[in-house]
């Protein structure tokens, strides 16, 4: 089946984000097919929250996600490798400061 045919006969792909409990971030849980946003949320409920994984669902059609190019990962991410001073590990912390 060509991509063009596929896109007219199959439901679009959606990315699903689940918040596991109040106060936490929505995290990517996976993807699924659905005809529209309402069905995507229901399908996400049935597919990704069956074991009490979530209290809130976000869905976004996959085509709206823009991703970085893996071929460019060298240029994008490697320059950070030798910048250890960007980690806050060079400060002397007083003992009184907890949870750092």
């Amino acid at each position: 089946m060509t991509d063009e045919k596929k896109s007219t006969s199959e439901w679009p792909l959606w990315e699903v984000f689940i918040r596991s409990k109040a106060g936490l971030d929505h995290k990517h849980a996976g993807s699924l097919h659905a005809a529209d946003a309402a069905m995507a949320i229901e399908n996400a409920r049935d597919t990704y929250t069956r074991r009490m994984e979530g209290v809130s669902i976000w869905v976004v059609e996959s085509k709206y996600i823009h991703a970085s190019n893996p071929d460019e990962s060298g240029a994008l991410f490697e320059p950070a490798n030798d910048k250890i001073y960007r980690h806050p590990t060079f400060y002397d912390l007083p003992d009184e400061v907890k949870h750092m």
Binding site: L32, H33, N43, D46, T47, R50
Partner: peptide
């Protein structure tokens, strides 16, 4: 008919 509805 589709995996998602099978699960539903």
């Amino acid at each position: 008919p589709v995996l998602e509805q099978d699960i539903a």
